[in-house]
């Protein structure tokens, strides 16, 4: 059985779901804890190891509404790591936001600019 992690969202940290078996990682909510790098430590470490494995498909749903600069650094690091791994063509990133939130859509476009190999979808519901 693969790695599984679920963390409820708090006022400063997002809801996190990782289900290795179904190849899914999901962040949702707000992320601006001053120690957010530490919050993502276990997740980053798992991701680094997971990306070395021979997975069939991996989806990362990212639905963050508010986030701080440390979160941006974590996300950028993760995206670049995904984009440069051997299985990068099996990765789909969904940047999810609401239709009227132009600013967050633009943030997604900025992230998208820096990835070349994985599939990056901007989803405005």
């Amino acid at each position: 059985m693969g790695y599984k992690l679920e963390r409820e969202k708090t006022e400063l940290t997002p809801y996190v779901l990782i289900d290795e078996e179904s190849g899914l990682m999901k962040f949702e909510g707000e992320s601006y804890h001053e120690n957010i790098f530490e919050f993502f430590k276990e997740i980053r470490e798992w991701l680094t190891e997971y990306l070395k494995t021979d997975f069939d498909a991996f989806t990362f749903d990212c639905e963050l509404k508010y986030f701080n600069s440390s979160t941006v650094k974590v996300l950028l690091g993760m995206l670049l790591e995904m984009d440069s791994c051997d299985n990068c063509d099996k990765i789909t990133v969904n940047w999810i936001t609401t239709k009227n939130n132009r600013i967050i859509i633009e943030c997604g476009e900025d992230f998208e600019e820096d990835v070349e190999n994985l599939t990056f979808n901007l989803i405005a519901n």
């Binding site: 601006y32 509404k65 508010y66 986030f67 701080n68 600069s69 941006v72 650094k73 950028l76 670049l80 939130n101 600013i103 967050i104 633009e106 943030c107 900025d110 992230f111 600019e113 820096d114």
Partner: peptide, 20 residues
């Protein structure tokens, strides 16, 4: 380049937060 990107996205995220 990553640093520039980080600042660019962070600025937008801050604007979004203030708007909210």
């Amino acid at each position: 380049r990553h640093q520039q990107k980080l600042i660019k996205i962070t600025d937008k995220a801050s604007t979004n937060m203030i708007t909210g």
